[in-house]
Design a protein around this nucleic acid. Structure first.
Lengths: 116, 116
DNA sequence: GCTGAAAGAAACGCTTCCGTAACGGTCATG
DNA sequence: CATGACCGTTACGGAAGCGTTTCTTTCAGC
C-alpha cells in the first residue's frame, strides 16, 4: 500500500524530522552514516565494507570511517568472517536499534502532524 | 489530513530517500545544513542567524558557517537588513529551490514504493 | 555624543571528514 | 608453496566541521 504525499507534505515531513533530530540528538550523524545505519538494520545480512561501498556509491575508506565512528557511538559492531577471514561482517547493536526506533517514532509523529 | 505510517514504513522511507540522496548528490550536506535549508524555504521570512540558532538549538557560528557553505553552493544568499543593519536577512535562491524540489520528488517517489 | 547591549563574523585550536594511494592479511589457482 | 587477486585498514595532505572566545558594526537610551 503506497503512501501518496504532496510536494508540500514531503518537504514538511523532512523538515520536521530533521529539525527535531538536530534538536534532540547531539551525535549529528552525516547523511552517509544514516544511510549506512539504516541499510544495516533494514536489509538482511550479511553486510560487508565492499558491499556497502558499492551500494552507496562511495569508496571503501568512507565505509571504514563511518563504521569506526558509529562503532564508537555503539550503534554498530563488526567482527571478522570466519568463513573468509578477509571479510568483516557488520552487525547490529541494541543501542543502534534504539536509535532507529526513536528516529522511526519521530517520522511517524511528524507524519501525523501533516496537513495538505 | 495526517499521514499515518507504520514503524517499518517510516524507516524504509527514510532509508530509501537517504540512500538515493547519497548516491545522486555529491554535495553531502549535514543534517544541520538540511534543517536550515528546509527551514528557510518552508517557514515565512524573515530569517536571521540568531533566530535560526535558537530554533535549531545551536550556536551562532554554526549558522554562519552553514550559510557560508550553502552560499558557496548557491543554495542560499544573505543581505544586510536595511531597517536594522546589524541583522542579516537570509534569502532563497533558484538553485536552492531546485535542490529542494528534487528532494521532494525523491521523498514522494520513495513514499509510493512503500508497502506495509 | 557616550555608553552598553545586540547581531553577526572572524579567529583559535581541535576533531572529523574527504579521496587517493599504499599496506598487511587472506584466499585461490597453478 | 608461489603468485596474483581480493578485502579491509591505515597513512597522507587537505578541506570543513565544532565550541569558545574575541572583534566590528550598529542600535538604543540616557
Amino acid at each position: 500500500m503506497p503512501v501518496e504525499l504532496t510536494a508540500s507534505q514531503a518537504l514538511n515531513l523532512w523538515h520536521g524530522v530533521s529539525l527535531e533530530q538536530v534538536r534532540i540528538d547531539n551525535r549529528d550523524l552525516t547523511l552517509r552514516q544514516i544511510s549506512i545505519l539504516l541499510h544495516i538494520y533494514l536489509v538482511p545480512p550479511p553486510h560487508t565494507v565492499r558491499g556497502l561501498a558499492g551500494i552507496l556509491g562511495v569508496t571503501k575508506p568512507v565505509i571504514t570511517r563511518a563504521l569506526d565512528t558509529m562503532g564508537d557511538l555503539g550503534l554498530v559492531t563488526r567482527s571478522r568472517d570466519e568463513r573468509d577471514r578477509r571479510n568483516m561482517i557488520i552487525k547490529r547493536t541494541v543501542d543502534g536499534a534504539l536509535y532507529l526506533e526513536k528516529l522511526g517514532d519521530l517520522i511517524i509523529d511528524q507524519g501525523r502532524k501533516l496537513s495538505i
